[in-house]
Simulated assay, not measured.
Amino acid sequence: MSVRIVTYNLLLPILAEQPGNYVVSRPEYLKTEYRWKLIRSQLEQEIHSYKNTIICLQEVSNTLLSTLQAFFHQMNYKLFESLYNNQGNDYRGVALAVPANLPLIYKNAVTIGEHLRLTIQSFDATFNSSLWWKTVKYSIMKTFKDQSVNPWEKAMSLKNVLICVGVMVHGRPLFVGTYHMPCLFRDPSIMIIHASAAKDLMFQIANGHPFVLAGDFNMQPIDSAYRAITRRGNVEDRVLPKVGNRGVTYRFNKQQVLRSAYREKNKAEPNYTNFATTRHESSSFCGTLDYIFFTGNLTVHDVLPLPSHPTGKSYPDRTHPSDHLMLAATLQLV
């Protein structure tokens, strides 16, 4: 009994085609029509080559949504999507595609920031008053201007959504979630908050059953947010300030951690999963940001081989339709 988990950041068309954004990529390779043909081919390869292929997608856009819906309908898949960003980002969101023949037992989309706000005990009746809400709104508005604002306020204001489904595989339940972490690597406290909250929420949803959490986490293996997901007791409390006037922190579960499919199989994470040269960076970025995490009675049978180093000066290019690589792993239910 096995499942194939695929995760892929598709790169927003609005970013790829923005003039001068990918400064060294050839314009013809940035066109949505060209990129979609390559993306479709890669997804078809995974669907046709493996049974029970479940696909996690990030940077799903309003521009490509109808194309994705038609493609997965043709593949006899169910597509669940959540577009949560604003019009300027083409409503960037996430999606999860599941073979129609796998019985569905659960599906949900949770805004992690809202989940944090609702579950912090210090935000009870007193803090839920109208006065409190006005204070929070004011604090959130100031967050982007005043770096001294408590990062919990910013973490709660973010709209990133975790999509999770539960399916039956040969009569056994498996939960799969996908998430696109905020790209706030210069503020590790917010990254720790969102990484830990997404991980803990998946444990709650799965309720003792095996699960997979895959996506673009915008963190590298050396980062504290990665340790918060994969190592017991590594939520770095000294990085996290207290929440609210009562000085109470969110209670992360430091004992429930996840394993990485690529690290389990290859003894190390990929050398890189993202390679890009944009006008916003002084040099090319090449690093590992995408992961397939899992826990429970699962073993890694194989992973999609990834290159050890990039070719060319930047992705997208002739053979890479996104600035991210597609990751995939076959997991056995034991």
Score class of each variant (00 low, 15 high):
Ser2Glu: 14
Val3Gln: 09
Tyr8Glu: 00
Leu11Pro: 04
Leu12Ala: 11
Leu15Gln: 12
Ala16Tyr: 07
Glu17Asn: 04
Glu17Tyr: 01
Glu17Gln: 13
Gln18Ser: 11
Gln18Gly: 02
Asn21Pro: 04
Val23Asn: 05
Leu30Asn: 00
Lys31Ile: 10
Glu33Cys: 04
Trp36Thr: 01
Leu38Asp: 08
Leu38Tyr: 04
Leu38Arg: 09
Arg40Asp: 01
Glu44Leu: 15
Gln45Thr: 13
Ile47His: 07
Ser49Glu: 13
Val60Gly: 00
Asn62Met: 09
Leu64Ser: 00
Leu64Ala: 06
Leu65Ser: 03
Leu68Thr: 04
Phe71Ser: 03
His73Glu: 15
His73Lys: 15
Gln74Tyr: 14
Lys78Ala: 14
Lys78Trp: 12
Leu79Asn: 06
Phe80Ile: 11
Glu81His: 15
Glu81Gln: 14
Tyr84Ala: 13
Ala95Val: 01
Pro99Asp: 08
Pro103Ala: 12
Ile105Val: 15
Lys107Asp: 05
Val110Cys: 09
Gly113His: 03
His115Leu: 11
Leu116Phe: 12
Thr119Asn: 15
Gln121Trp: 10
Ser122His: 05
Ser122Trp: 00
Asp124Asn: 14
Ala125Thr: 12
Ala125Pro: 01
Ala125Lys: 11
Thr126Ala: 13
Asn128Ile: 09
Asn128Gly: 05
Ser129Asp: 07
Leu131Asn: 12
Leu131His: 13
Lys137Gln: 13
Lys137Leu: 12
Ser139Val: 12
Phe144Met: 15
Gln147Cys: 08
Gln147Glu: 12
Ser148Glu: 15
Val149Pro: 02
Glu153Ile: 14
Met156Gly: 05
Ser157Pro: 07
Leu162Val: 00
Ile163Asp: 09
Cys164Asn: 00
Val167Thr: 08
Gly171Tyr: 07
Thr178His: 01
His180Ala: 06
Met181Lys: 04
Leu184Met: 11
Asp187His: 13
Asp187Glu: 12
Met191Cys: 14
Ile192Phe: 05
Ile193Val: 10
Ile193Gln: 05
Ser196Leu: 03
Ser196Cys: 10
Ala197Lys: 08
Phe203Ala: 04
Ala206Gly: 06
Asn207Lys: 10
Asn207Phe: 10
Gly208Ser: 08
Ala214Gln: 03
Gly215Ile: 04
Asp216Pro: 03
Phe217Thr: 06
Gln220Pro: 06
Pro221Gln: 01
Asp223Ile: 02
Ala225Ser: 12
Ala225Phe: 03
Ile229Asn: 02
Arg231Lys: 13
Arg231His: 13
Gly233Gln: 07
Asn234Pro: 00
Val235Ala: 06
Arg238Gln: 10
Lys242Gly: 11
Arg246Phe: 15
Phe252Gln: 05
Phe252His: 11
Phe252Trp: 09
Phe252Lys: 00
Lys254Cys: 06
Gln256Ser: 13
Arg259His: 12
Ala268Gln: 14
Pro270His: 02
Thr278Leu: 09
His280Arg: 13
Phe285Met: 13
Cys286Trp: 07
Thr288Glu: 09
Leu289Phe: 14
Leu289Thr: 02
Thr295Val: 13
Val303Gln: 02
Pro310Lys: 08
Gly312Ile: 05
Ser314Asp: 08
Tyr315Arg: 10
Tyr315Pro: 01
Asp317Val: 01
Arg318Asn: 10
Asp323Glu: 02
Leu325Ser: 09
Leu327Pro: 05
Ala329Val: 07
